[in-house]
Design a protein around this nucleic acid. Structure first.
Lengths: 193, 193
DNA sequence: TGCTAATCGGATGGGTCATCCGGATGACCC
DNA sequence: GGGTCATCCGGATGACCCATCCGATTAGCA
């Protein structure tokens, strides 16, 4: 799977670049490869060789979180309650998007630059689609909601939280409130039914 | 109100610039003043004198639509049915955001560059707040939704529609579906109650 | 028609971005 | 342990985009 195991110094620099990228993302600074190189104490050429574009670095930074989400998505399929499974899936996904700034742009992007990202997103959407289909078949969600609506709605919630602003702790609370509102609109039959 | 009535050629150029800006916005091209000048057949300096930044031009382009929304907002206050008034207000606002690409960035921006924009947004938010408060007092909306949530949620819907993509006609349909879902989550008592 | 003040509009300087190539270094084999 | 080679490092470099400034021009007015 790894065509060339990467030389020792190259691997060290790779880690360094990703670490700086993660730090920049966390503090909300837009990724500029020239800037990343300066902060990492590494030549500009090295950074551009490892990551052809800021998007490539961003996707790399987001990969671990995407992997966790994809894993949780597959695991949610085991839940016998269709509505609870969908609810948990959406909750976890939205909270991850709000908590990790690298996720929102990657999930909203129509095109990916890393194959791994495409693969993970495909897995994640596949889980979401199945969960939504199951819930619809059980009659617990609006029938006019298609699988293609799942991603936009989650991105919309994340964006709404961003527009609302506030401290990180407050933002998670906001996200939960917005998601609860949306879920209330998604659900057809009351929870007690 | 108009400190200096603007010279004839200056007014002509102003109109020309706004027209080009409107055209660019409609076709989804990001506003670059240098580019606007070239397309309008006008010197770069002239464009920068009329509009200090791309945001200023964007806000100018969006102003007519904002004025219409603000007018409708005040008019909605006359509706005796609190829920129907709020519903109509949100519907009109979201549809305008989806139909006019200049609106979304302006409404989502925390800071404005034109005083007129700030004034119109303030009017609009004021109407929205009143409508929401009235609906909450009537017990027809979730009690945990604050006035500050109105703008983020509408921007979130508009963003979700954008992520969903598709042709303009399809986008309005998508917007209506998303808004219906959100409204279903907002409402506490069924419409017939 | 001539004067004045405002406007026009391109040439110009600063800044950012991505690339390229000579020097250096790690990996492998003898 | 030493030599050879492929790979990597990293800053200097060129191209591009943006915003400003000032000489030339034109509209408004007596």
């Amino acid at each position: 799977m790894t065509p060339t195991p990467l030389r020792k110094d190259a691997a060290r620099n790779w880690d360094q670049i990703v670490a700086v990228g993660r730090a920049l993302v966390d503090q909300g600074t837009p990724l500029q490869l020239n800037d990343v190189a300066r902060r990492a104490g590494i030549g500009v050429g090295t950074v551009y060789r490892h990551f052809a574009s800021p998007e490539a670095l961003l996707e790399t930074v987001a990969t671990p979180c995407l992997e966790a989400l994809a894993a949780h998505g597959e695991q949610a399929l085991a839940d016998p309650d269709p509505w609870r499974a969908l609810e948990g899936f959406l909750t976890r996904t939205v909270e991850a998007q709000v908590g990790d700034a690298s996720l929102a742009p990657v999930t909203a992007a129509a095109e990916d630059v890393l194959p791994r990202t495409t693969e993970l997103k495909s897995l994640l959407w596949s889980s979401g689609t199945t969960l939504l289909d199951r819930a619809r078949a059980a009659g617990t969600v609006r029938p006019d909601l298609a699988a293609g609506d799942l991603v936009p709605l989650m991105c919309g919630i994340a964006y709404a939280v961003q527009v609302h602003g506030g401290a990180p702790a407050e933002r998670i609370d906001t996200a939960r409130r917005y998601l609860a509102t949306l879920l209330g609109g998604l659900r057809v039959t009351p929870p007690g039914a």
